[in-house]
C-alpha cells in the first residue's frame, strides 16, 4: 500500500488520507490523476519526507505528501 496525505486546500472535497494499492499507481502523477489533482495545484511533493517530482515512481510502504502553495515563517 501507498499512503497519500493531502494538506491545506487539496483537502477540499477529498479525504485527508488515502491508502492506495501500489500495484494500481506507478508514479506520483498516477496518484494525482486518481484524485483529480492537477500538477499545477501541487507546490510541495514529498515521498517519505523528501522532495520529489510527479514522475517519481512509488513503491509499497511509501508515504506521499502533497501540499498546495503553503508557507510563511
Amino acid at each position: 500500500m501507498v499512503e497519500v496525505r493531502l494538506f491545506a486546500g487539496l483537502r477540499k472535497g477529498r479525504q485527508k488520507v488515502y491508502q492506495m494499492e501500489s500495484a494500481s499507481v506507478k508514479t506520483v502523477k498516477d496518484i494525482m490523476d486518481a484524485l483529480d489533482i492537477e500538477v499545477k495545484e501541487v507546490n510541495i511533493l514529498l515521498i517519505n519526507g523528501f522532495h520529489q517530482k510527479p514522475e517519481t515512481e512509488v513503491k509499497d510502504g511509501d508515504v506521499v505528501s502533497l501540499f498546495p502553495a503553503v508557507g510563511g515563517g
Binding site: 507546490n43 514529498l46 501540499f67 498546495p68 502553495a69 503553503v70 510563511g72
Partner: peptide, 25 residues
C-alpha cells in the same frame, strides 16, 4: 500570481507550515 502570496497565506496563514515542516521531519 504567486500561490503563497496570492492566496495560500490568506487561507491558512503561516500556520500551514506545521504539517509541512513535520512532514520533512
Amino acid at each position: 500570481e504567486n500561490g503563497l502570496t496570492g492566496g495560500g497565506l490568506r487561507a491558512l496563514g503561516t500556520a500551514s507550515l506545521v504539517n509541512v515542516i513535520n512532514s520533512v521531519g
